[in-house]
Amino acid sequence: MSEGQVFAECRPLLFTIAYEILGSAADAEDVVQDSYLRWHGAEGKDIGHPRAYLVRTVTRQALNHLRSAQRRREDYVGPWLPEPVRTGPDVSEDVVLAESVSMAMLLVLETLSPDERAVFVLREVFGYSHREVADLVGKTETTARQIAHRAREHVRARRRRFTPDPRTAEEIVGRFLRAAGTGDVTALMKLMAPGVVHVSDGGGRVTAARRPVRGREQVARFVAGVARTSGLGAQAEFASYNALPALLVRSGDRLDHVLVFEIADALIHRMYAVRNPDKLGAAVVPRPLARRRNATWKP
C-alpha cells in the first residue's frame, strides 16, 4: 500500500481524534495536515506501524494546539461553542461515537485539562489500552491510568444524554421551523422542555446573545424574534450536525448559522446556534468520522 493510500485510510480516524481533542474542525484539519507532512518528512526512517505513528503524531500535535487554544478561549466574546461538523447516518449508528461528538459532550470535555481530555478521548472513545494511551500522550502507564480515572469521573458527573429517534427529531424540528417562521410563540413553547436553554456563539464577530437564554417562554420569544430578522422559516435546511438534528440557516447566499438541537421525550431541551463566521467556513461539507470498535466506555 502506498504512503498516500495509508494516510487516506487513516484520515477519518485521525480527524476524529483531533476534532474530539480540540473541538474545532479547522484546527483538526490543520493538525492532520501537519501530521501528514511530518510523516512524509520521516520517509526513509524505520516506521514499522504507520497508523500508530500517525495517531501518536496527531495526538501530540493536537495537545500542543489545545494548550494554546485554551488561552485564546479565555478571552472569547460571549459563549464558546464547538465548531459544528456535518455528520451522516453512519455516525448516529455508532452510539459511542455519536455521543462523543455531540455538543453536550464536547462542552463537558472543555472543562477538562488538556491531558485529561486527550486521555479520556483515546481511552474511552477510541478504546486504546492504558499502555497505548501512555505512549500516545508521552506519560507513564501509571500516570495515564490516574488521569483516565479522574477524567472519567469528571465526565460522568457532568454529561447529559440525548438519543432521539431520527424520524421524531425531524418531525419536531419541522414543527419548530413552521412555528418560528410564523412567529407563533405558543406553538414554540409547546415544543420545548420547561428548562430549555438556547446558546448563541457569535464570537464578537456577529450579533448574538452574550448569555444563554433560559426558560420556555424566554427562549420561544427569542427564537421568534430571531426568525423575524433572519427569515428563518424560508431559508433553513434540515441536516445532521454532531450526530444531532440541526438546521442550516442561510441569509441570501451566505450561511448565517447552524442551529443544533438536543431533543428528548419529544421536547427540545437545548439549542446551540453557531453564528461565528470563523466556524462556518466548511460547515456544509460532510465529515467522515471513524473510531476503533473496541472502545470500553459504555454511554
Rank of each mutant, 00 (worst) to 15 (best):
G252N: 03
R73T: 02
L66F: 06
P79V: 11
A18V: 00
I263F: 02
I47K: 06
P212Y: 11
E153K: 15
G225Q: 05
G215H: 06
A209K: 03
L244D: 10
Y53N: 10
F126W: 10
L14E: 06
E43L: 11
Y272P: 00
L112M: 14
R159E: 03
R211E: 13
T296I: 05
R67E: 08
V173K: 01
E262G: 03
P166F: 00
E29P: 10
R152T: 11
K298H: 12
H149K: 04
G281E: 14
M105V: 00
A8K: 04
D27P: 02
V101A: 07
R152G: 08
R214Y: 06
R67I: 13
H65P: 00
L122V: 14
F261M: 04
A227C: 06
E20F: 11
T296M: 04
E9R: 15
I268L: 10
V96M: 08
Q218R: 07
E171Q: 13
T59L: 05
R152M: 09
L191P: 03
G78H: 07
L109Y: 15
A148Y: 13
A290C: 03
W297V: 07
V258M: 10
A224E: 04
L37Y: 14
A98D: 01
T59I: 06
T296C: 01
R216I: 04
L97D: 03
A180R: 13
L107C: 14
A234N: 09
A282Y: 07
S230C: 02
M271Q: 06
A144H: 10
V108P: 01
T168K: 01
P84W: 08
H154C: 10
